[in-house]
Nucleic acid binder design. Structure first.
Lengths: 401, 401
DNA sequence: CATTATTTTTTCATGGCGTGAAAAAATAGC
DNA sequence: GCTATTTTTTCACGCCATGAAAAAATAATG
């Protein structure tokens, strides 16, 4: 490690603090980083000159204080932009934020993902990103963060398998990096949701927690020791394919009796429709279909209620396995707009408490969130911004903005 | 981060390299650390002066080379000593190594752990350590590393639960730190074995792997992303108490049908002795009893063979759950001297392959080790030495040796 | 309206750190 | 004894963070 690495690391720390805490005074930055005022003056002055930060004389209306007023340091929006690309079901969403994290572009299109081949998908992505860049030519693109349902390979930047796409090994990062000449991160949607929750709910979901995403299938993400767990070979973890009822309902993965075969969009729908035939084909479930299923259950429909109950039990079983393997930890249940977990809450708790050694306070551990799409977007933006922070921290020579 | 932190980190990196690779030339240290020859000269010179390292003119017999001969840098044995204390079953082992990692003291005594109260245990530990220190007065004690069977709390340095001890919350670290005024680490035996394997078998068991320890109960340790996973609340992980056969054999934890109730010393013995009564009391199983069980199975005893088969299936079930949750990863099965896993190997594989999605090469993934005691000791020594490395790296002022 | 008190920010001299180039040291070959 | 070769140390340099002092910017005071 060399002297300039030291400087880069201190710069990075300052940027991260500003990203997490918002515009801050030098005093706050000093406390958070442990650096001296002199060092701050030096580092911040450099970064302001480089166009990474801005300094403003904030005069808070209410407060009148003696002495030289504090200046507020902020991330300079003009330092660049990051693009978030997500593909969930048939929706491809492209959004961009400036360096301060403000949304500056958003677009969305529907794709026939099942029919698309590798080349057409990659071309679509490229075109859509170009469309967004055209709207904000002044801001240099510095990072792209991509989120998919399914199994991704973050190291290779590949996309390995998804319920909505027919091909395998889609080299997203390689293609986009070539086309745009910026780093491209490819991650699983659950991990990105975990990143968003970690940032937002940092008081509750701190060092160790899991996220369970019920959308198209059943996904899982995890933070361990304060770090997002990016998996061993593929991204994140899989709760859905733990064996739950051997010989039971058929799962999309080919096996029978997986947790996902009960606790997922298609599992729920199948249970509710025809309780006899659990080996029926596993088509995609639209958001509307899931909504109407929730309405049926709330309306008292017996079969629907039974489906949610079974899903809750399966999910509780899976979580109790996780709690056995690890210690009990906070869990975020993330679903679509419908308050879907409300319908299984009691069954989840019951299934978990029947198989846990100690008495647990589940209200403290289980948190539900109903805005999966939003969280995914936030996670993507945060991931892209983090990447830009890292780049700019290591930029010790002058930069052109 | 300040300039002296930088120096400390570079010092630490050099010490770690020397610890892992043994006595090395400056050339090797330069390549491993990326530091310049000038920096090396400076850093190493300091540490030699401080008595942390030694430099020797090695003249390798075979090789005759032109030019100034390389000097070899080694860890100075006289820089201090670390103590390893372990309590497994009724055996309390105290060993000490000098700073180069050479064993300089070993002692062992049998304790009636079930009968001992908190105070007497702590006093025994203190006395035993003092005994060891008396033998090597010249070397200052710099770290103590403690390993226990059971559940530990590494952060608090507490010992929470063990099959062989009747009390809870034994504040080992606090007491020993007060008595000896050095840092004391308290860890689970499985994690320490994982540390030893990581160091020794670093080619196979690298960034992500699990260790399963079959001794008194069924323990588990894990490396994730190259770091030992020290658990969320307690140490490490628990494979043993995943529900395997609801309503099945009684487990020591109070529940029924845990994996451990089948795949452990007491599970094996119970299955082999009286297949009818799986709710029988769960006494401790001596090493001799386990040995004779292995002999019976090798001799063809049907009940014994059946017991090992069931244990293998249970273990395979647990591992397939882990492989589902994470991706497949290397697993080290660690047992006592007997080649115990040989007797369950086929059942483990069968149980795993029947429930894994992909075809796995289990010979590549599953490794067995038969020297649990040895590995634990190595892990303890390594842990203590690592701790000393960290201390000495941060010691920038002169030290008295 | 000028002066003083107070608070924030920058400047400056200093010591520490790693680097590259040059010098010194240590050995084999001739 | 001289030269070639390789390793190690020394030295001047630029960079980094620090503490103390100076400068800047405002409120209170008279």
């Amino acid at each position: 490690m060399r002297s300039d690495d030291l400087r880069a690391e201190n710069r990075h720390r300052l940027l991260s603090t500003l990203r997490a805490d918002g515009p801050s005074s030098r005093t706050h930055l000093g406390e958070a980083s442990g650096l001296s005022q002199a060092a701050l003056s030096n580092l911040l002055g450099d970064m302001i000159e480089q166009g990474i930060l801005t300094s403003s004389n904030n005069s808070k209306a209410g407060e009148v204080r003696r002495g030289r007023p504090q200046s507020t340091i902020s991330l300079n929006p003009m330092a660049g932009q990051g693009i978030a690309l997500s593909l969930v079901n048939d929706r491809c969403v492209i959004r961009a934020t400036d360096y301060s994290g403000e949304l500056i572009y958003t677009n969305e299109l529907h794709l026939d993902t099942k029919a698309a081949d590798q080349q057409s998908l990659l071309t679509t992505f490229t075109d859509q990103i170009n469309l967004g860049l055209h709207e904000n030519k002044a801001l240099p693109l510095r990072a792209i963060s991509v989120g998919f349902q399914g199994v991704t390979d973050p190291l290779q930047g590949q996309f390995l398998w998804s319920p909505v796409i027919s091909m395998r090994k889609l080299p997203v990062a390689k293609t986009l990096e070539q086309n745009f000449n910026v780093p491209v991160a490819v991650n699983n949607d659950c991990l990105l949701i975990a990143k968003a929750l970690h940032q937002i709910q940092s008081s509750v979901l701190t060092d160790n927690f899991s996220t369970i995403l019920l959308s198209c299938g059943l996904g899982m993400g995890m933070y361990l020791s304060g770090e997002p767990f990016t998996g061993i070979k593929s991204s994140g973890l899989e709760l859905g394919h733990i064996r739950y009822r051997p010989g039971g309902a058929r799962c999309r993965c080919g096996k029978s009796g997986c947790i996902e075969a009960y606790a997922s969009d298609y599992g729920l729908r199948r249970s509710a429709c025809n309780t006899k035939d659990l080996h029926s084909p596993l088509g995609l479930v639209s958001r509307d279909q899931l909504s109407s299923l929730c309405r049926q259950a709330r309306g008292g429909d017996k079969k629907a209620l039974q489906a949610f109950s079974e899903a809750g039990q399966a999910l509780g079983y899976g979580l109790s396995n996780v709690f056995s393997l690890f210690d009990p930890m906070p869990v975020a249940l993330v679903g679509p707009d419908e308050q879907i977990f409300e319908l299984m809450h009691d069954d989840i708790i019951e299934s978990m408490s029947s198989s846990s050694r100690e008495q647990l306070d589940f209200d403290q551990l289980i948190h539900t969130y109903e805005n999966a799409d939003n969280l995914l977007q936030q996670g993507l933006h945060f991931d892209a911004m983090e990447n830009i922070d890292k780049q700019l921290a290591h930029l010790n020579s002058q930069m052109a903005v």
